[in-house]
Design a protein around this nucleic acid. Structure first.
Lengths: 361, 361
DNA sequence: CCTCTGCACAGAAACGCTTCTAAAACATCC
DNA sequence: GGATGTTTTAGAAGCGTTTCTGTGCAGAGG
């Protein structure tokens, strides 16, 4: 009997109509006399009645569920730094508002299939997590009229959808400025995955600031990575085998920066005494694992939270004009970037992953 | 018009009944003449018809959705190592079978509220992720008749639910054996979070093996942790300030082991030359971040995969007898555990996080 | 006494699909 | 040419809600 008591059972037991039960159980009890209200409430209680959300959704044409779609490019959720934080922010906003989350992880790149899966009436709106260039998720226009918010990718306006992301440009500019302020002039850069908009935005900001300061960019110090730590390690290897080496390298994200430190350890190049390294993202695990990485912190949780907020607003008001929201990042100065002119003065220290007193500020 | 074409529209356009359209679109086209089949198919195509999954669920009394409920104790998904891998495994099994996932992250510990949220007709079954002692998720018996599988916690039989987990006991026993084989007799242990069954199972295995080998357990070397890296760092601090120190310490998980290495670095105690450290779990990030931790690897992905498989089997066959499945772990020997009798012979090396040639197989 | 307003409740039509049951349409056989 | 079968198709009753539209019936006002 439990779990299957229906509204009709409640009505029967309370001796009233289904309408009455429905209204009262939805909190419209001011329409009825106290006695009726009590009868219905206790009937429901006794039967252990719980409304069937599927039937409710059908009748209301609202599911109180939003979809979170991961780009098929990010095959495994596990390895996706980004998604975890964003998901937490989304959950935090949605939970108290009684919205549920449907996780959608398409394995194909065919937009028709992907969107058939997403927009089948089971959700009221969808958050696209870090769609990359060419993602089927971005082909929504022919397949769906659902409210959509994209996070983690600052897309060109043509995509006509609401976005929440961090301000990659401003944050990378600030980081580059800071590295320059430390006196570095020979600066390398490891680029992120070429399919990510953020990779291009970060690179562009780096280049612009370098130019603004009249510091020449050496193209052989600009290396392609893919946001994975191995790519960082590889890039560092190439970089460090060059006859002329930079004194600092900025990686487009923390993971690649960790890769750089691993290569440095293997080659016995102390950080930051011989090479300064900066990352981007301030990843929880990198931080947690004790790397004292100088990086840019930004609030992914907040990105998710705001995305959920914007989406719910769109759903509830019908407002569809796309809006873009860019959150600022903040520089986090730790120990992997040293003053450039201090380099010569230091004795060669033992090969440690991180020296304890490497920088000030 | 798009996204709202209904079965009736299709039927009208094809000039047939709703029944006919429904049957044909569900693949029962052998019941009809080729001409009819074609007419329906192309009508659906032209209208861009997509079945409404909510209506379908209501009619079929099946939602093709399973719930994944995280214990409220694990507040943020982000910081939950375990859930990511498991979720990936679940997704991998479910995706090709056209099941969707509803993420449920209750914020309260009241079982009635939690289960009202879970079992409201919107899912066909649920996977409980790492329920801890006293979790509202475990109070299902009064609130739900849904098929349930628990993962990540090996629960006492009384809970009467299917379980998939790793064999904590056997794996920790193997690890302890191995540390003993390296000649260590003075071995410390850092316990996991006391609300996790796994913490107790791992501790028990450690103690049993020690006893079996007639090695005395020093209670002051057994410290309480909580599976977080800080707790590992703290425990290590306590341990290393003792007048008599162990030569090896086993942490009940990798994160705490990382905490130990951080304390060691701060105190300039080389690993493994002065202290050997072993972890448990072979966490992806710990591995990825370059810690060469000796640990126990187990397949969390597989746990999720199997859990999904068992759950679907239960849903589809109605079979409800709880079954338990324990997956073996495998020892992963890296560089943080050294031979005990080699200790005295080594010179004091520089304070490195990890020495490169610390151990052999 | 009769209409009018307001209150307390009920009927019934959706929502979009599945599926059981049965009815036409057509062929087969003696 | 009817009894019998076999396809092929349609009708209609759900599934469990919500919600629009009423309907009695009380008391108030004329």
């Amino acid at each position: 009997m439990r779990g299957k008591a229906t509204l009709r059972d409640v009505a029967e037991r309370a001796g009233c109509s289904i309408t009455t039960s429905s209204n009262i159980l939805q909190g419209r009890s001011h329409l009825y006399k106290e006695a009726m209200v009590q009868r219905v409430l206790s009937a429901a209680q006794e039967l252990g009645y719980r409304p069937n959300s599927v039937a409710r959704s059908l009748a209301r044409r609202r599911t109180a569920t939003i979809g979170v779609a991961l780009d098929p490019h990010h095959t495994r959720l596990t390895h996706n730094f980004y998604a975890h934080d964003v998901l937490d922010g989304i959950l935090a906003y949605l939970e108290p508002r009684n919205y549920d989350i449907r996780l959608i992880t398409p394995r194909t790149s065919d937009p028709a299939t992907v969107w058939r899966r997403i927009d089948n009436g089971s959700i009221d709106g969808v958050i696209l997590v870090a769609p990359v260039m060419g993602s089927p998720l971005l082909e929504w226009q022919h397949y769906s009229t659902l409210p959509i918010v994209a996070v983690g990718s600052t897309l060109p306006e043509e995509y006509l959808l609401s976005q929440v992301d961090i301000d990659n440009d401003a944050a990378m500019a600030a980081l580059t400025e800071w590295v320059l302020q430390q006196g570095h002039r020979a600066i390398g850069f490891i680029k992120g995955h070429p399919l990510h908009w953020s990779a291009h935005q970060r690179e562009r900001a780096f280049r612009r600031v370098m130019e603004q300061h009249g510091v020449p960019i050496r193209e052989e110090w600009i290396l392609q990575g893919d946001y994975g730590s191995e790519s960082g390690a590889l890039a560092a290897e190439q970089l460090l085998r060059l006859p002329e080496r930079p004194t600092a390298v900025i990686a487009a994200n923390d993971e690649m920066a960790v890769g750089v430190t691993q290569t440095c350890r293997a080659l016995e190049i102390p950080i930051p005494d011989v090479l300064s390294v900066a990352g981007f993202d301030d990843s929880y695990w990198v931080q947690r694992m004790g790397f004292q990485l100088t990086t840019v912190q930004h609030d992914r949780y907040q990105v998710g939270y705001l995305a959920a907020q914007i989406l719910l607003h769109q759903i509830e008001t019908g407002e569809t004009r796309p809006q873009r929201m860019l959150l600022p990042g903040t520089l986090v100065v730790r120990r992997t970037v040293a003053l450039a002119h201090a380099l010569a003065a230091l004795p060669t220290p033992p090969t440690a992953l991180i020296t304890e007193g490497g920088s000030r500020q």
